[in-house]
Amino acid sequence: MSPFTLVDLKRILLEGAGADDGVDLDGEILDMEFVDLGYESLALLETSSRIEREYHISLDESAMADVTTPRALIDLVNSHLAAAA
């Protein structure tokens, strides 16, 4: 299975939670805090739920709670994908 990328994450964020008008998701966002991108905990819950059903994985809740940046979330998803492979 191909790895989960920022492109995938941006698509899922937009579908599930939309985008803040003041934020450019095409900018350098990998290491920005989700909160600064306009996504609060409920947006991340929706995002993780969409990732889980699309990629048929189950994200560990406590690991998810520690995720605060796109890079951390992408790494978490890829570690699950690797484990499932």
Binding site: E15, G16, A17, G18, A19, D20, D21, G38, L42, A43, E46
Partner: peptide
């Protein structure tokens, strides 16, 4: 209304 609010 802002894009963040549409899906919710």
């Amino acid at each position: 209304i802002p894009g963040r609010l549409i899906p919710q």
